[in-house]
Design a protein around this nucleic acid. Structure first.
Lengths: 166, 166
DNA sequence: CCATACTTTCAGTAAATACTGAAAGCGGGG
DNA sequence: CCCCGCTTTCAGTATTTACTGAAAGTATGG
């Protein structure tokens, strides 16, 4: 396969994958483009290569920087801003985990805490409290596990995990 | 908090959470409704309680059954089909993991395998192959870890994981 | 302190996604 | 073997979500 074709296919696939990870298609495609580029890219470069509008590039680029998936790179003598992608996959994974945890798991935990206090002594209320309690247990475990995941070196994490389970 | 209010809030929140887990809002809401009900529900029950159309209930209910998040429950003397929700959270988590893995991770692995073979001897091609290689490594690790997760008892999994990391 | 080169914002619009409801399909009972 | 109660399907429509592009904002150099 030719390099150019490979890059295109990668950008497309990373975009599709991203959209099921809470990263919009375009955001993931920009990230993919940065991943497969060994030189920094300006907004104009990205606009041209992915055929998207300036506003779209700007918004998604800022999101990528927010998430820690890309960095601004100032080039001496240039007034434009340039960007490079985070290529360390363990960092990429960590960034995504952190963002999703904040967005999804934490609000859930807050709700579950409130729901523990539903009133009622009948079987129905009892059942409800049990579902909530169980869910809370798993959510807290998941929360702690994810915290741990982002703290430790991912390489170590996965290999230990595997040897433990096999 | 009253039981009814608790149920409503739970259904709403579970719906919102679901949508960021590849489960549509309605599918997750139906699942939530089944979770907090101690009696089986028919399509008509769900239509009424969630104020959604018959077609919508039918489609999403079948998806829930596909995913292993709900089961058909035949009630003697009734011609309607009734459904109950999977309340074992470890099973719920496993089901979701399996579905997403199939949908997301596996296509990615196939693509990455193809992309390993891009041609070119220059630095650019070399860099590209490295990104792909690295990503492939993590993807395979994640794949194995998820396989392991669905095989073992989740309770054991999480607690061992935690004690290992702490 | 203006001109210029770039970045940001956001109202309007396009695209993707999910839902409705009516019609067709299906199967058991009479 | 056909009626009835229920389930499934799917074209049309609504809703949500993402993108565009032009105008406003900002900073730098002269």
């Amino acid at each position: 396969m030719e390099l150019e074709e490979g890059k295109e296919r990668f950008i497309e696939a990373w975009g599709a994958l991203g959209s099921s990870w809470g990263v919009t298609r375009t955001m993931a495609q920009i990230h993919a483009l940065l991943l497969v580029s060994n030189t920094p890219k300006s907004s104009d470069d990205v606009m041209e290569e992915l055929q998207i509008s300036r506003g779209n590039v700007n918004t998604n680029m800022r999101m990528l920087v927010d998430w820690g998936l890309a960095y601004k790179k100032l080039i001496p003598g240039e007034r434009k801003e340039f960007f490079i992608g985070e290529k360390d996959m363990s960092k990429v994974i960590k960034s995504i985990v952190i963002a999703r945890k904040k967005r999804e798991l934490e609000p859930m935990l807050r709700l579950l805490d409130e729901l523990t206090g539903v009133e009622g002594k009948d079987a129905e209320a009892e059942d409800f409290r049990n579902v909530v309690k169980d869910l809370k247990l798993y959510s807290h475990k998941a929360d702690s596990a994810l915290d741990a995941l982002v703290k430790v070196d991912s390489n170590w994490f996965f290999s230990t995990l595997l040897s433990m389970i096999k």
